[in-house]
Computed example of a mutant assay.
Amino acid sequence: MLLASFFGLLMGLIMGLTGAGGGILGVPALVLGLGLSMTTAAPVSLFAVGAAAAVGAIDGLRHGLVRYRAALLIALLGALFSPLGVFFAHQLPEKVLMVLFSALMVLVAWRMLRREQVEAGPSDHGAASWGQKNCMLNQQTGRFAWTTKCTATLAALGAVTGAVSGLLGVGGGFLIVPAFKQLTDVQMRGIVATSLMVISLISLVGVIGAFHAGVSIDAMGWVFIGASIVGMLVGRRLGSLIKAGVLQVGFASLCGVVAVGMLFNAFAPA
């Protein structure tokens, strides 16, 4: 139980510091640290990620940072495609899932290292000129201009996020944050808050799908979930004290190390 508390606290802490990125460490912590299988670890990780993300999303709603219409659209498509990911997770061999997860962690580390620094300005508007992004904020209302292009873009993002979430037991923040940054003119503080809301909603659907497939969470899993929520609260308080560049390099390095560990575990003799 002590080990479950430690890993849960660590995952929540990193999640709070990086704006959802730490969720990808949940499954490796449960598989490598606590000895769970991929299919058993996925719903525990999703539950922990979703609960911790909900804490951050509520804080973002209080400060008016969540693009809730966009979040609901992405979450809706994610909800439709998440069960598909859960289905394939139960069809694929354990070794294949571990290899896929390792590849995903390498991708996240690479994206984290090359992410440019963006400071939150006095408002949530970006500096892009009209038409440069798929989804643009109306400068008068501060809300998205819901064009066909914008709606289709966010729907596609939701579908991909949901499928990956169900398949590998991750919240999807590593997809949503860079995609929002690339496709919209929303500032980072609004992106992170919106991402946390989407993650909490999609994770809930993934957990329900896993329960429907017969997976249950034991006492150790609940301890992990509770500790992750505490870690998220602590991480959000410490975020302003640590430089973003240090966090990005540290998190990317940790992802690389864990990816190697997952590959080693996948091909280690039984």
Rank of each mutant, 00 (worst) to 15 (best):
A54Q: 11
L25D: 12
P43V: 01
A29D: 05
G171W: 10
L204P: 09
I225Y: 01
G206I: 02
F7N: 12
A29C: 12
R189Y: 06
G221T: 08
K243E: 11
L154Y: 01
L167N: 04
A42V: 06
A75L: 14
L84F: 15
V192H: 11
A266H: 10
L80K: 08
G250R: 06
M262S: 15
S82A: 15
I229Y: 01
A156E: 04
V108F: 07
G19T: 02
I199R: 10
G235R: 07
L107R: 08
A179P: 04
G121F: 02
G121E: 04
S228P: 14
V106C: 13
V230I: 07
L65C: 11
A79D: 08
S129N: 10
S165T: 11
A42L: 06
S45Q: 09
G245D: 13
F101T: 04
L107G: 12
S228D: 06
G162T: 02
Y68T: 13
A156R: 01
M112A: 00
G126Q: 03
V118L: 15
P43Q: 03
G21I: 00
I229D: 01
S129Q: 12
G131A: 10
L17V: 04
A266Y: 13
G158A: 11
F7Y: 11
V66K: 12
L263N: 07
H125L: 15
S195D: 15
G131Q: 09
L254G: 07
P83D: 05
F264N: 07
G158W: 06
L84K: 08
A109T: 03
S102I: 11
V44A: 00
R114Q: 05
G126H: 03
R236F: 04
L254W: 09
A159Y: 03
A155G: 03
V49T: 15
N138E: 00
G22F: 00
A51D: 02
G209S: 15
L17I: 10
G78Q: 10
N138F: 01
F267M: 03
L175F: 01
T39M: 06
G121V: 08
P269Y: 08
G26V: 05
L157D: 07
L107F: 11
F180Q: 10
A29V: 08
A4H: 06
V164L: 13
A71R: 10
L25E: 05
S45F: 06
G23C: 06
A20K: 05
F174Q: 03
R237V: 15
T161H: 05
G60S: 07
G256A: 06
L107Q: 05
V44F: 00
S216Q: 14
R115I: 09
G231Q: 06
L263V: 07
S5R: 02
F88T: 14
V249Y: 09
G172C: 00
L3P: 08
L154G: 05
A103L: 15
T161F: 01
V205K: 04
R189H: 15
G206W: 03
V164H: 05
G64Q: 05
L168E: 03
V49K: 09
W110L: 13
H125P: 04
L107A: 14
G12C: 06
L100Y: 08
